[in-house]
């Protein structure tokens, strides 16, 4: 086979394989169902990364595996390949195209970061206090304290995280976002729960012996139910 035929064949294979990979990546549900508006841009970014990653992976894999099969040489004789030392247009291309992709991804990422850390009007404020090895939630607007995090659906929430001892991290997989609770400072997290149901908040930063079990219930309810819960606790 001539050199060009190899190239054409491999390119066709690249297109096929990357199409398959992209279709798989974009249509499989890898992750738990999203339950907060902040989850949308994060999931979008993840799929974008997987899509681009799939194409790059297919490109490299096809050329690698194709070379192994097409150019395998079994004897240790004096046969040597053509002395291609460099080809500048190709090298420039594989420097500039990844650079462009990286720039594009960085802009996308910056936008997502902006989206998820934006403050919303009329936020429900909750103080999240982490300690070894449990969580406590305070609602200063209502003068409440609770063992569970109960949130009304579709209302923006501002979490103020603090820690009494070591570093912990607030993570509800279905909300996607994550923020550390650091002793000596207050960190914030914005989220808007968008789906009813009960979830769990896990500690995502190793915090000692009880780290694996450090969790608390998170319950997203209708606003009316939230009001009743508040009234009941206030009594």
């Amino acid at each position: 086979m001539s050199r060009n035929k190899h190239l054409v064949l491999a390119s066709i294979l690249v297109v096929i394989v990357s199409a398959i990979l992209v279709v798989i990546f974009l249509n499989t549900n890898f992750i738990p169902t999203e339950a907060a508006t902040q989850a949308k841009p994060i999931d979008h970014l993840l799929r974008l990364l997987l899509g681009i990653g799939g194409v790059v992976f297919a490109l490299c894999m096809v050329f690698l595996i194709y070379s192994i099969f097409a150019f395998r040489h079994r004897q240790w004789d004096s046969a040597e390949g053509p002395p291609l030392e460099h080809y500048s247009p190709l090298e420039v291309a594989w420097t500039l195209i990844p650079l462009a992709i990286v720039l594009f991804l960085a802009i996308q990422g910056a936008r997502v970061l902006g989206d998820i850390s934006r403050a919303m009007p009329a936020e429900l404020e909750v103080k999240v206090v982490a300690f070894q090895w449990d969580w406590r939630f305070e609602y200063p607007q209502y003068g409440l304290e609770s063992e569970e995090l109960r949130l009304p659906v579709n209302r923006p929430v501002l979490l103020r995280l603090s820690s009494l001892d070591v570093i912990h991290s607030f993570w509800v997989p279905a909300f996607r976002t994550k923020e550390d609770a650091v002793p000596g400072m207050v960190t914030t997290l914005h989220l808007t729960p968008s789906r009813l149901g009960s979830y769990k908040v896990w500690c995502a930063e190793l915090c000692g012996t009880g780290h694996a079990q450090m969790q608390a219930p998170v319950i997203v309810v209708e606003p009316a139910d939230f009001e009743t819960w508040v009234k009941e606790l206030q009594k």
Binding site: R3, V56, S67, R74, L90, W94, P98, V102, A106, A110
Partner: peptide, 30 residues
Amino acid sequence: FMFTTLLVAVPTGIKIFSWLATMWLGKIHL
């Protein structure tokens, strides 16, 4: 930080593509 992290992918990519181009049309001994 996000940008610089991603940026490292570029020189890494150069290396990988160059290895693949080295293997292309070679006499590969496995």
